[in-house]
């Protein structure tokens, strides 16, 4: 589903991501962890096609991101760490905007909006301007906008920030369901407990370089993910 080969991105002489390679298969919930400034967001933005990278190759569902970005983006949904959306739109207008861009038929989008807005208890607020939304409501709206076009790959940067416990639980269920249905999820998080319970595979990044990657068992063995992470950080 997602192949990242030798990705390198430099900011003013400093390598934010250095020769990073990852492979995510359909059905995998893939967690991406690392300290602040390790290069997680840079990697996710590069995959989402909103950041030009210096070296390497990214392919999504067989399409090369550099030469065929539109085909890649059609298969992808991206949620940034701080989902700033169009404040001047209402929630429903924003969802329709996204659905229009992805050419989702009217009846299909209506059904999906109904389903996901009900799940996140956002239905009553869809008529409100986004400017009136709380951070958590914006996050829920961003999640609905990601699921509305049924993407093959969902890329999320810190998706649990701002969500209440119930919404976090629902998101975890949705992530699992999405992958069980053949999709894939690549997300970053600082919540190691969530990563440990939810992810099929995990990658740890430090100063732009991948220092550990594999299935959860391969990475943590008999220890907790937190112990492994802290140990690797100290090396």
């Amino acid at each position: 589903m997602l192949n990242i080969e030798h990705l390198t991105k430099t900011y003013g002489g400093r390598k934010a991501v250095d020769d990073l390679s990852l492979h995510i298969r359909p059905g995998e919930v893939f967690g991406f962890i690392g300290h602040n400034g390790a290069g997680k967001s840079t990697t996710l933005k590069s995959v989402a096609g909103i950041l030009q990278f210096d070296e390497g190759k990214i392919t999504i569902n067989g399409h090369d991101l550099a030469s065929d970005p539109l085909s890649c983006k059609k298969d992808l949904a991206y949620i940034p760490d701080n989902p700033d959306m169009y404040d001047f739109m209402s929630g429903i207008k924003y969802l329709n905007f996204i659905a229009d861009v992805f050419a989702i038929p009217a009846d299909v989008r209506q059904e999906r909006i109904r389903k996901y807005a009900d799940i996140f208890e956002l239905t009553d607020d869809l008529g409100q301007a986004i400017s009136a939304y709380s951070h958590g409501m914006k996050q829920k709206l961003a999640l609905i906008s990601a699921w509305i076009h049924d993407p093959k790959l969902i890329v999320m940067d810190e998706p649990f920030v701002g969500l209440d416990p119930k919404a976090s639980h629902l998101l975890k269920e949705m992530m699992r369901e999405h992958c069980d249905a053949g999709g894939a999820i690549f997300f970053s998080t600082h919540v190691l407990d969530v990563a440990e319970k939810l992810c099929d595979k995990i990658a740890i990044i430090k100063q732009g370089r991948l220092i550990k990657v594999g299935t959860m068992e391969e990475v943590k063995g008999d220890d907790s993910l937190e112990e492994v992470f802290l140990e690797l950080e100290e090396e």
Partner: peptide, 15 residues
């Protein structure tokens, strides 16, 4: 005032 959303038939547009 809080506007309670009332579902209306959606219309599709091009991108």
């Amino acid at each position: 005032a809080k506007v309670r959303y009332v579902e209306r038939k959606a219309k599709s547009k091009t991108a």
